[in-house]
Amino acid sequence: MKTWDERVDEIWAAAAGEPVDDEIIARIDALAAERGADDARAAFERAGARDSAGREAEAIALYRRALELGLDEEHRPQAVVQLASSLRNVGAYDEALALVSAETDAHPDSPYRDAVAAVHALTLASAGQPARGLSVALLALVPHLPRYHRSMTVYARQIAGTTPDMPTANTT
């Protein structure tokens, strides 16, 4: 017999590339019901289904509930990213920014740090601060560059207005 996680993964795999609709939500809800109303992972999956269907307001409440109930370290950062993204989508920029900032401060080495930075950058852009958003995105990209870490870090901070100008001849 398949595990609960395997059955959840099957639903998401079947939905890949397709719009999430009421059928997918119902299937996720049925699996979530097996774990009960006070199960963090069940709330997280229910939130994700609604989020994927464009029902952010419903998703937000469920993401909050999942985090309140206590998700494991694999799903907690995913819930933070997805909650912040949903908050951005409904225009709750300050709350989304507070959430991603707290996540970055508390877990700077998380495997989800780039996803957190991406949502942070998008939220800043949506909130009318595109230069700061670009800066956040560039700073997240810097560790993945083969060279130019120092100069790109300085340029990213210049764009955000957080560092003095640097001569452009230095590229390492």
Rank of each mutant, 00 (worst) to 15 (best):
H144L: 12
A61S: 14
H120P: 02
E56K: 08
A66V: 02
A118Q: 07
D94T: 15
Y93K: 07
P111K: 00
D21G: 10
A156P: 04
E95D: 12
A118K: 03
M1D: 12
G128H: 11
D51V: 11
D38M: 01
L122W: 06
H107Y: 01
A15E: 05
N170I: 14
M152H: 11
I11M: 01
A160N: 07
M166V: 13
Q129E: 09
R27E: 15
A84P: 05
S86I: 15
D9H: 03
A92N: 10
G161K: 04
W12A: 02
L138Q: 10
P77Y: 03
Y112G: 01
V154G: 08
L141G: 04
R50L: 14
H107G: 00
A66C: 02
L71N: 00
R132C: 05
A42M: 05
V90S: 04
R150Y: 11
E45P: 11
V20L: 07
P111M: 00
Y155R: 15
Y155G: 14
Q82W: 15
A160T: 05
P19T: 05
G91D: 14
A115F: 01
R41K: 08
A37H: 07
L71H: 00
E23V: 10
D5Y: 04
A15I: 04
R27P: 12
R64W: 06
A121C: 00
E58V: 09
P164I: 05
A137K: 11
G70N: 07
A14S: 09
D114S: 03
D105I: 12
L83F: 10
I25D: 01
A106L: 09
R50F: 13
L62F: 02
Y112A: 02
E68M: 09
L71P: 00
R157L: 10
T163F: 15
S110Q: 06
D22Q: 12
L69R: 08
A115S: 05
A47L: 09
G54Y: 09
V20E: 04
E23A: 15
A13N: 11
A102I: 06
T104I: 04
P164K: 13
L69I: 04
V154S: 08
V154L: 10
A96M: 02
R7N: 06
T172V: 06
L83I: 14
L139N: 11
P130L: 06
G91F: 11
D105A: 14
D38H: 01
D29V: 09
R132K: 07
A53Y: 06
R64N: 14
A16K: 09
A53W: 04
Y148Q: 15
V136A: 12
R55G: 10
A57Y: 13
D39C: 02
P164C: 06
L67Y: 02
L134I: 15
H75W: 00
F44W: 03
V81F: 03
P111H: 00
L141W: 06
D9C: 01
L87D: 11
A37L: 05
T172H: 14
T168Q: 13
Q78N: 13
T153R: 04
A127V: 07
T162A: 10
L87N: 07
I60E: 12
T171Q: 14
I11E: 04
S101H: 15
I60R: 09
